[in-house]
Computed example of a mutant assay.
Amino acid sequence: MPANKKYLTRSPWQRFAKITAGFIGGYMVTTSVHIALAFWLDHVNVIMTLRYAGFLLWGALLILAFLAKNGWKVWGIYLLLTLFFAVFIYLGKTYNPLV
């Protein structure tokens, strides 16, 4: 059964933004979350968790990028989330330098 045409993205730029936000942006958020957790928790356990939970989180972020109407807003949200977790990575390096 074909998709309803009114729900499909017509703009090639929006399609490009959604695809890249889903793949690249979702991957950036996923890795930044797990690296931030690795600096604050036991890094061996977090790396083992990244193998499975990372794939699930990346897949969920990939799907969420396609559910939005504007792909550029999704890019903005993913970049802000990555920056937010980058701050936690910096604070983790500062306050837990031995990890």
Rank of each mutant, 00 (worst) to 15 (best):
T82C: 08
F23Q: 10
A60I: 04
T49A: 11
Y27M: 11
V74Q: 02
G71Q: 04
T94K: 15
I19G: 12
F85N: 04
R10D: 13
I24V: 09
A53S: 07
R15Y: 13
R10F: 08
L81Q: 02
I63P: 01
G26K: 01
A38R: 04
L91V: 03
T94Q: 14
F16M: 14
A68P: 03
T20M: 02
Y78H: 05
R15K: 09
G54Q: 03
G59R: 06
Y27E: 08
L79I: 11
Y78N: 02
L91D: 03
D42R: 04
G26N: 00
I35V: 13
A3T: 11
F85W: 05
N70W: 04
K73I: 15
K5P: 13
L80R: 14
K69E: 14
Y27L: 12
L62R: 12
L41R: 08
A86S: 14
A17Q: 01
F39E: 08
L41Q: 12
I77F: 12
H43E: 06
P97R: 09
Y90H: 14
L37F: 09
A36C: 00
T31Q: 10
S11Y: 00
A86W: 06
K18W: 10
Y78W: 05
K5W: 09
W58E: 08
L56I: 04
S11N: 10
A3W: 14
A36E: 01
T49C: 04
D42A: 05
T9F: 10
